[in-house]
């Protein structure tokens, strides 16, 4: 069944869509750790998934407004009112490391993005 449907959508491909350089950048950008096997298999799986998007070429998208929200809501805002917060204990209750009421991480460079 999976194969029949894959064939229907022509998504099996050997064509590389994402360059090796972009793939490496992607791993870094997403802060993920990939095994050597995953580096290979995920790369080709991403290429397959992107191949699907070629069907967009069949549509005329000129002058089509992008849709971000399926509903028609607008101007949903809060009044500027203070409500109760977590206690410090609640805030820190799942922290891996804490110190004197602070969350703690091993030292990071002071340079900030």
């Amino acid at each position: 069944m999976i194969k029949i449907l894959s064939d229907k959508l022509h998504i099996m491909t050997t064509k590389q869509v994402i360059t090796d350089a972009d793939f490496a950048k992607l791993v870094k950008m997403t802060k993920l750790t990939l095994s050597d096997e995953e580096k290979v298999s995920i790369h080709s799986q991403l290429d397959e998934a992107l191949k699907e998007v070629e069907v967009f070429d069949e549509l005329d998208l000129k002058n089509v407004v992008p849709l971000s929200h399926p509903g028609s809501l607008q101007n949903i805002m809060r009044e500027d009112v203070v409500i109760d917060s977590f206690t410090q204990d609640e805030a820190l209750s799942n922290a891996n490391a804490k110190h004197n009421g602070f969350f703690m991480v091993s030292g990071v460079l002071e340079d900030q993005t």
Binding site: A91, H99, F102, F103, M104, V105, S106, G107, E110
Partner: peptide, 14 residues
């Protein structure tokens, strides 16, 4: 940034 138990750490206040 601080030293806790001799280790360089960063402390975060949200």
């Amino acid at each position: 940034h601080d030293l806790v138990d001799g280790k360089k750490v960063s402390l975060i206040d949200f």
